[in-house]
Design a protein around this nucleic acid. Sequence first.
DNA 1: TCTGGGGTCCTAGGACCC
DNA 2: TCTGGGGTCCTAGGACCC
Length: 424
Amino acid sequence: MNIVALVDCNSFYASCETIFKPDLSKKPIVVLSNNDGCVIARSSEAKKLGIKMGIPFFEIKQIVKKYPVHVFSSNYSLYGNISSRVMGVLKEHCDRLEIYSIDEAFLILNKYSERSFVSRAEGIKKIIRKWIGVPVSIGIANNKTLSKVANRLAKKDELGSQVVEIINQKQIEISLKVLGVGDIWGIGARIEKFLQKNSIYTAYDLYKADPRWVRQHLGVVGERTYRELHGEICIPIVERSEPKKQCRVSRSFENYVTSFQDLEKRIISYATRASEKIRSDGLQAKKITTFIRSNKFNNNNKQYHAAQTYDFISPSNDLFETIKFAVKALKSIYRPEIKYKKAGVLLSDLTPEGEYNRDLFFYQSEESILKKIRVNKVFDNLNNRYGSGTICVAKENYEKFYITRRQNLSPAYTSNFDDLPNVN
DNA sequence: TCTGGGGTCCTAGGACCC
DNA sequence: TCTGGGGTCCTAGGACCC
């Protein structure tokens, strides 16, 4: 039997912000999404002030004014950097590791050890705290879903060790009784509502439900969750992540956009970023989609949401071809009377670079293909070396359209020499 | 006045084939 | 007047996750 430990960093983004500003620890901190729109991370002190996850920032401005809440724009290069340090430590302390998200990983622990799982987990926790400065919670169980349950309880144990093990049936049942059904991994808001309508409120209620009823109403996905609650292993640990299948770059705008030219600049910008991303992953796309939409929160304006997908002639990650198709798609869905609030470019059906059939009717000489590849390389090298946006397509205007509002950005402590913290 | 971004998987239904 | 049965593949939309 497997033992799965789920390690989850507490309030990850907020914790990252305090590493280089230790005077902020134990203070209420929030981190905002792009455009400084929503709250996407809160320190536990901020949670206690009643600041909810995902809430629009403007709705908590009063609280921020009243209490000394420290506000940060999201600093993804910092968080990514801290994350890889954490994962590096975890890798040294388990048999197998699945990096599940920027702040979470599933560990398979070797069963044969003199120390208990709990004491090993406590050791891991201490090291991460000391070496990197991030607090973590650890849940230990027989499968992923139950390790998520254990982790949930560990998170609540703020004054204790924040390591929780649920292995035997009694521990499992007690744990499920104190969690709401919506707290279960895989049960989202929609299904939670449906279950509550059917008198299933706690995780334990679902655990006790009729398996046929679960299969019938929640489908195979729900059935897997149900079985995992009962200790079966249905969701495997995936060590080496599969290559990505799609890559999306999209942004909400700070103001309404109506003109085609303005929209086009943004689409070129997103297409550029998306093609850069798949080139750096060694992938190419078969399809490209451009989408645009009005403000879904404002019903006073006319609602409009449209997308257009094209197939590349042959799979591509070429900058100029990507831009060409993205703009072509934009032209086909653009309507001048709409106030747009968000747009994006999606590259999908990704395959490893170089894997394709030549198109019978679209002949390109070897020479011209190689030339395109060289141009893309130069483009990427310049931007990698001197910073994103150093070179861009003339129509794009990088500064203005890719960067969104980030008024409270912390320094790039770990990725820019000029921002290195000083020690006095 | 102000509401993120980027992924995955599953299913139902349509198009098409023999 | 009466019009089959059984597949596959693709896509859009819905649900979920962090």
